[in-house]
């Protein structure tokens, strides 16, 4: 049985881990599942207060400008940092039960992805309420962009989850890495603000293309540029392949290392 078939066979495990995570997370809290929507909404509130009234950025509807990029970014960064602990957190399972280890990062990233999709309900609600509206022709591009980001996040999660088993520090370093990465990605500013000189470096960052594409679709209401999309897909696929093989090499000794 090939690895892919095997992972496909374990698809129920992926879905039940996601369900457990999504439903278990807010169990016992008074508002329960509503937190999934409340959280991004409250964040939006904070950003609006800070950037539209205190620290004015000089960008029209800055809260929206930021929000449509921040939600996808949070998906990516939580895959990056959460990926690091996803194998160690299931130590007992990994040491005692056989299942394709890829299931763990896959369910983590997919869970975060589902979370992002749910947050997007809030994003669209805000866009509608703000009266800015959406461009029906640009919207379908959201699907490939999300897919590319998913692949990218998965590739990263494969890398961080497997290395962290051997090098526990990574879990702590990654918090800072995620922050630096966010500032080096045009999440809070637009790529035009970056000096021409260092802009090529930004294009090496796969998340730059992804975030720009999101913003093109949702904020500028236009189809993303083709070369942006292609670059993002190529980098996404590259990351996934590297992550996949790295993970495949490392997983054999997971049980002994923990």
């Amino acid at each position: 049985m090939s690895k892919f078939q095997e992972i496909y066979h374990y698809r129920t495990m992926v879905t039940s881990l996601i369900q457990r995570d999504l439903r278990g997370r807010y169990k016992g809290s008074a508002l329960g599942f509503a937190w999934t929507f409340l959280n991004p909404l409250l964040q939006l509130g904070v950003y609006t207060i800070v950037f539209s009234t205190i620290m004015r950025a000089g960008i029209e509807d800055y809260y929206l400008f930021l929000f449509v990029a921040l939600i996808p970014w949070m998906f990516f960064s939580s895959s990056l940092t959460g990926g690091a602990s996803c194998i160690l957190a299931q130590k007992d399972m990994v040491k005692k039960i056989y299942f394709p280890r890829e299931v763990l990062p896959i369910s983590l990233v997919t869970c975060q992805f589902v979370n992002m999709l749910l947050s997007f309900i809030v994003v669209f609600a805000v866009i509608l309420v703000s009266g800015k509206g959406v461009a029906p022709l640009a919207l379908p591009y959201l699907i490939p962009v999300m897919l590319v980001e998913y692949l990218l996040a998965l590739g990263i999660a494969f890398v961080t989850s497997s290395i962290t088993v051997y090098l526990r520090d990574l879990e702590h370093i990654l918090g800072i890495v995620a922050m630096a990465w966010q500032f080096l990605t045009p999440v809070m500013y637009s790529i035009d603000m970056v000096p021409e000189r260092i802009r090529p470096i930004f294009w090496l960052n796969p998340m730059s293309s992804v975030i720009i594409a999101y913003r093109d679709i949702l904020y500028y209401k236009k189809a993303p540029q083709l070369n942006t999309l292609l670059l993002a897909s190529a980098l996404g696929a590259g990351f996934l392949v590297v992550g996949w093989f790295l993970f495949g090499r490392m997983e054999k000794h997971f049980a002994e290392e923990m």
């Binding site: 129920t12 369900q19 278990g24 039960i97």
Partner: peptide, 16 residues
């Protein structure tokens, strides 16, 4: 926090 029934699904899915 999940019911016995829900846990059966989780646990059995881990067994493949």
């Amino acid at each position: 926090d999940m019911s016995g029934r829900e846990n059966i699904y989780i646990n059995a899915s881990i067994f493949g």
